[in-house]
Amino acid sequence: MRPFTYTKTEDTAQATSKLAANENAKYLAGGTNLLDLMKEDVERPDELVDIGLLDLTDIKETSTGVSLGAMAKNTETANHPLVRKNFPMLSLAILAGASGQIRNMATNGGNPNQRTRCAYFFDTAMPCNKREPGTGCGALEGQNHMHAIFGWNENCVAVHPSDMCIALAALDATVTIADGNGKTRTIPFTEYHRLPGDQPERDNNLERGELITSIEIPKNNFAKNSYYVKVRDRSSYAFALISVGAGLELQGKTIKNARIAMGGVAHKPWRAYEAEQFLKGKEATEENFEAAADAEMANAKTLEHNAFKVPLGKQAMVRALNVALSGEKV
């Protein structure tokens, strides 16, 4: 870990201006990913601005839905009555991630900014365009069973690791961002993260100095019929091979609306628009769920070690939809 100066602030504007002033500065929130990466010498800030004391911890009802403060911990969020009742898929997704200890530390604002778990990104001896642009992608022709099947290119095949963000993408959340000039902007959660394109070093569309202050989830009618399924290499405390967040809004047996997002498949939370489109207006049956999943997986492009993600992705999506339909898990 490189030397850095440590400061803390209770003022959002001061925090953002510090980051705006120093391109090598980073925010320190829960620290669960940043300190890990600093010890690996992947993240190399020379200044940490501790924002753990910012007054952004509220989880509250708004006129349009629920607002999650950026500094509220993942644990509080998953267990907040507003979240549990209205967005159980989000509670489940958060609880599927990491461990109790880490969820007690990790914040809502930090979670979307966690970086990929790709081993080539973590290992400074390896090529990685995300860590060191221009060095190549180590995983493309390396060990890539954890890697992407959607939206990747030869620059980067890494996947986004968060569970929480999969649910937020499915739930049409928006992100409120403060900049260094006292201004805020709001962007749809599905547009917060990026595909690798020709800038794989950029995980998201946050500009220098900007800070997530809250995440808003609009009211919806998916609560009763939603689920988050996660498949991993051990039963807990592991990153997803595939995860699927699914919500159904039903009118009798007919699907009025479906919301589906997948984790472990792309450089960003992968909203399964093809599957959603297919299901809209159709009857909620296993056959239709399978056809919807096939429609989504048709665009998959696999690597040497991750072909299994196509059948697994399909079956996980069907499972998520089936459980959501049953209404049993939530």
């Binding site: 081993a119 973590f122 290992d123 001896a125 390396g142 051990r234 807990s236 405390y237 592991a238 990153f239």
Partner: peptide
């Protein structure tokens, strides 16, 4: 069920570098 060390055939580097990648069983297993 879970344990395997994998190496990159080209570099001889370890893909399972840490406890996050080398999966020993957890309580729920």
């Amino acid at each position: 069920m879970t344990e395997e060390t994998t190496l990159d055939k080209r570099y001889g580097s370890y893909v399972t570098r840490t406890f996050a990648d080398y999966h020993v069983p957890v309580n729920l297993d």
